[in-house]
Design a protein around this nucleic acid. Sequence first.
DNA 1: CGGTTCCTTGAGGATGATCAACGAGGGTGG
DNA 2: CCACCCTCGTTGATCATCCTCAAGGAACCG
Lengths: 195, 195
Amino acid sequence: MQIDLDLLFTYGAIAKEYKKNDVLFYEDEMANFYFQVVEGCVRMFNSNDEGKEFTQGYFCEGQSFGEPPIFIDEKYPSTAVAFQDCKIIKLSKEKFLKILDEYPAIQKQFLKLLAHRIHNKAKTTKDIINQKPEFRIVAFLNAHKKSTGNNKEVVQFTRQEIANFTGLRVETVIRTLNKMKADKKIDIINHKIYF
Amino acid sequence: MQIDLDLLFTYGAIAKEYKKNDVLFYEDEMANFYFQVVEGCVRMFNSNDEGKEFTQGYFCEGQSFGEPPIFIDEKYPSTAVAFQDCKIIKLSKEKFLKILDEYPAIQKQFLKLLAHRIHNKAKTTKDIINQKPEFRIVAFLNAHKKSTGNNKEVVQFTRQEIANFTGLRVETVIRTLNKMKADKKIDIINHKIYF
DNA sequence: CGGTTCCTTGAGGATGATCAACGAGGGTGG
DNA sequence: CCACCCTCGTTGATCATCCTCAAGGAACCG
């Protein structure tokens, strides 16, 4: 889901550049802006007291993020950082809500978007709870592979990133991946994972 | 969030009674109806291969459920069963979408509803991943306590239900609750939990 | 009562986390 | 060009935690 860039600019949006690891907003901050990715990719995550991070999701080119709290006057449930160098469009909450009011079709698009998000989160949560490291990793790989074809493709995530998303530790991810390789479920060539 | 009952009936909705444990729909079924609870409470959950259940959420009097897949022509991600004897309103998908089209205010309400759901799910997932059984249980108790006051109140869930929601095993829940009692974090009187 | 459903306890075991160390590659600046 | 420092991947050993299994007890209800 993305709103037309011209429309956004008409309503006063600005484009901003972020370097990798720049923070866009912090967990528990009030939500005052609508964000839409033009270039790059953003990661949303939570950290617990011991510093262990849990990745809630990635938002890439053409995707918006951080909208739910805008609709309900809530704080951000997670922190957002640039996963790569990014160009991001920002629009104030008020203007964003105005667009929705004036363009019912867009509002409907957002309804669908949120429905997708819930659907995905339900699936993800289910898969993570299912414990079994291998199962969690497979679910992650399936959810994040680009093509739907049968042919294997290289996985663009580090083992640490897989760990952060699945709630496992790096070492466990590595050992599980090695087992999966032995079982011919994935290929690992020169440290790169093919799934 | 609930749609006015008269309006629902005008559009052809019917009320249906379910006995405890009756199934309203199964995981992976296509979503063809809008559901709204008039009386009682519904549980949505997934089962894994070993039969272990994970509760995605409870939906009680006045709440609707199972809408996300309707918006996006998807299957249900979970199974829904009557948690108690229930009276539920059902309306066909087509009619439901028609209501949304004809009443923009209602559509907006649903946007907010879905935003709330996502926000909650993000928090819940974060808390579950945080491992530590005690932390998960406290998160569950906080999320499901009725009043927001400081005074303790009785918890209406069985230990098995807490286990299903937190992804723990009953025995672990029991032992953790006992520890929490010893630490004065909860009271347990005659097997009932006060939090 | 007899049958549920729910709660409880103990013992044992498996699994993933933790800790510690090291290797390999890529980029940077002297 | 080389030394250094990153980040990322890897391995082994040990440990703590939660799961599993088995058994029984308590409360409730027709």
